[in-house]
């Protein structure tokens, strides 16, 4: 089966972001950018499905700026066969991204689409579910295990109370949680090979997709800072403080 994987270029998870002085957003100048960690897990899962002989072709797609080609090349180095960049401005809302992905799904007709459950910049956790709505596909979100069983996909999901398993008709949408797999690193020969793999660029206009939004960001502020308290010298002192000062026990 053909597998489509969507990836997003985001601030590296190790970077502590700072809010811009004019409160228009966070400062992304000269900040290290990477593939969203949940998207790395999505790519890895597709590669494993290919290694098992379940997936025949992996197409990786990103909706974002020209520079997102870096993340697409990373995915190609990890084992994706070809890449598509839907070139668009930064800061798209999830619905706009889902609409662009829907257009790619219509064109590519994958049996399975794997996405990260959320991007660590906007923390929205929406795109996969929205793509499922727009395509009419079943969804297995927050997946910790994915198994193809005949014409069904069994997805084990991490839910608040524990784990839940659902059986989905194909084609289906899966969004990854942290424990689905541990992504590999790209080897140097594979990074070199990835440079020769096809990477196609399209515009939302060419796909006939509107990126209009019903939401606007008015301002972005730093959160209320929490100041460090005191160090206590002993457990006895800690208990005394919790009882008499904080009055929480």
């Amino acid at each position: 089966m053909k597998v489509l994987v969507a990836v997003k270029r985001v601030v590296d998870y190790n970077v502590k972001v700072r809010v811009k002085a004019d409160n228009s957003g966070v400062d992304l100048a000269n900040v290290k950018m990477s593939m969203n960690p949940f998207c790395e897990i999505a790519v890895e899962e597709a590669v494993r499905l290919k290694e098992k002989g379940v997936a025949s072709e992996i197409v990786v797609v990103s909706v974002g700026p020209t520079t997102a080609q870096e993340q697409l090349r990373t995915a190609l180095a990890l084992g994706a066969d070809r890449a598509i960049l839907v070139e668009a401005a930064d800061e798209l809302n999830s619905l706009a991204v889902a609409k662009a992905l829907k257009a790619i799904v219509d064109k590519e007709q994958p049996q399975l689409v794997i996405l990260g459950k959320q991007a660590i910049d906007s923390d929205n956790n929406q795109t996969g579910q929205m793509l499922a709505a727009l395509t009419g596909f079943a969804q297995g979100t927050f997946a910790s295990k994915v198994e193809v069983a005949g014409d069904k996909l069994n997805v084990t999901r991490e839910i608040d109370g524990g784990l839940q398993t659902v059986a989905l008709n194909l084609p289906a949408i899966v969004t990854t949680d942290l424990r689905l797999n541990e992504p590999r690193y790209a080897s140097l020969p594979n990074i070199m090979k990835a440079k020769k793999k096809p990477l196609e660029t399209v515009t939302p206009d060419a796909l006939g997709v509107s990126l209009a939004s019903t939401t606007k960001t008015i301002k972005v502020e730093a959160p209320a800072a929490r100041s460090a308290g005191i160090k206590v010298k002993s457990v006895a002192e800690l208990v005394e403080k919790l009882k008499n000062e904080a009055k929480v026990i």
């Binding site: 966070v26 906007s122 008015i218 972005v220 502020e221 730093a222 959160p223």
Partner: peptide, 9 residues
């Protein structure tokens, strides 16, 4: 947003 390192209105 950004793991609570910024608050968007």
């Amino acid at each position: 947003i950004y793991a609570g390192n910024a608050i968007a209105t």
